[in-house]
Nucleic acid binder design. Structure first.
Lengths: 158, 158
DNA sequence: TATTGTTATACTCTATAACTATA
DNA sequence: TATAGTTATAGAGTATAACAATA
């Protein structure tokens, strides 16, 4: 705790501005997933995204990614398999384990969301000034780098 | 559709960079709500946030804010009232309507999340360079302004 | 008759606990 | 015995449909 923090007040005000401005970005980000509405539930989508991000997962791994327990993940997979979006088969190396992979329709769904998110973002960026775009990119890149570092060090202390 | 878009490729690449950088910000934003885990479910939290943002709401209004139907909102309110976070009373002006307001514990919960979000954001901003902070603020403010405009005009066409 | 909510009913999501199969 | 998953069972979230109360 430094004895003198002359910028503390300004920094608090700045984070308030960033906070409210970031809200719009968060909203836009989340709305891309609306294209999956009617096809899969939010939970099912998170499961597909977890499998998509990790390539191969077993059931405990999926549960860990979702912050859920294996039985919940198992039920989720039941429905995703029934919907033809996910493949669940016994591992070649350990017959206790299952291996979860995306089926083509599952991959298509994730790609569709990503495409939609990218298109919306491109629209907004295209309507911004060149200086605004440059500033946003610079600011976000430093932000995400610093946030990752802080995240890492706080996990060590937890 | 303009005939010539020389910047189309660059713009697409830029939105990809912004996309991945923004992901970290979205994650940080969402994590603030983890402080409510164990107290209320995500759905209940969204309901509290909707009431908090609008001050007064009737049940149809809440359902509209949640993108749900009145019966679902009614059940949500049952549990929030039982938990002492929400107040549901008959309107003075129209005895068909109910008026939903936050109880002190409900307000405290939302304030706690906001405080946590603000603190995390302040930590990250404090670890950034002055130039990075300025760029981020400028970029986000223009982004959110433009995104709101596009949102508004797309609602008109929908 | 139209509007505002609530209540049955049913399906999904989730957790706990008990179970099977494999190592 | 420990590990990986699955299957009862139960509570919460949600929608449809039927209902009561008010305007």
């Amino acid at each position: 705790m430094p004895a003198i923090r002359p910028l503390a007040h300004d920094r608090g005000a700045l984070s308030g501005s960033v906070d409210s401005a970031a809200e719009q970005m968060v909203r836009l980000w989340a709305r891309a997933e609306d294209v999956a509405q009617g096809q899969v539930s939010p939970s099912q989508l998170r499961a597909l995204q977890a499998v998509g991000a990790h390539g191969l997962l077993n059931l405990n791994g999926l549960a860990a990614q979702l912050g859920a327990i294996p039985s919940s993940a198992s039920r989720l997979c039941d429905r995703l398999v029934a919907a033809g979006l996910l493949d669940r088969r016994v591992s070649d190396h350990n017959r206790r384990e299952v291996v979860l992979t995306l089926r083509p329709d599952g991959k298509r769904l994730l790609a569709e969301i990503e495409r939609h998110r990218h298109a919306t973002l491109t629209d907004v960026l295209g309507a911004m000034t060149q200086g605004g775009r440059t500033a946003l990119l610079r600011g976000l890149e430093e932000f995400s780098r610093v946030a990752r570092e802080i995240d890492k060090s706080s996990q060590h202390s937890a």
